[in-house]
């Protein structure tokens, strides 16, 4: 399933935009836009999402090329970590008071 908002009926396809706001940080999804191709999508993304130096790098991805998890199966799909709190450090309480642990 593609990202929400994509429609094959539109004259220009939808692109999802990811911006790296600074060195050392990941690209983060900031929104979407329409553009005829990748080159123009990058330029539109610069004009639309980085007018105030919000980014040092931009990625654009055609919305139709994104595969998402099934929105209807949310509960079941993400169920596996439930009840496995031993994956978290705070599950282990016997070491309380011991330093550097």
């Amino acid at each position: 399933m593609t990202t929400p908002g994509d429609s094959a009926a539109e004259i220009w396809p939808l692109w999802e935009v990811f911006v790296r706001s600074n060195r050392g940080l990941s690209h983060v999804h900031v929104g979407s836009l329409h553009a005829p191709d990748g080159t123009l999508a990058v330029r539109n993304a610069r004009d639309l999402y980085t007018r105030r130096s919000e980014g040092v790098s931009v990625w654009v991805v055609p919305a139709s090329a994104i595969t998402t998890s099934d929105p209807d199966a949310k509960g079941a799909f993400f169920e596996s970590p439930a009840g496995k709190n031993y994956r978290h450090a705070n599950y282990y309480s016997k070491s309380e008071g011991v330093k550097h642990l």
Binding site: P4, G5, S7, E10, G31, D47, R51
Partner: peptide, 23 residues
């Protein structure tokens, strides 16, 4: 004025996530 255009586009995108098309 460029900001206003940008604001319009952010909002159109938000409406599109509900199934409305830009066209």
């Amino acid at each position: 004025v460029q900001d206003e255009a940008g604001h319009g586009l952010y909002l159109y995108s938000a409406a599109q996530t509900l199934g409305a098309t830009r066209d």
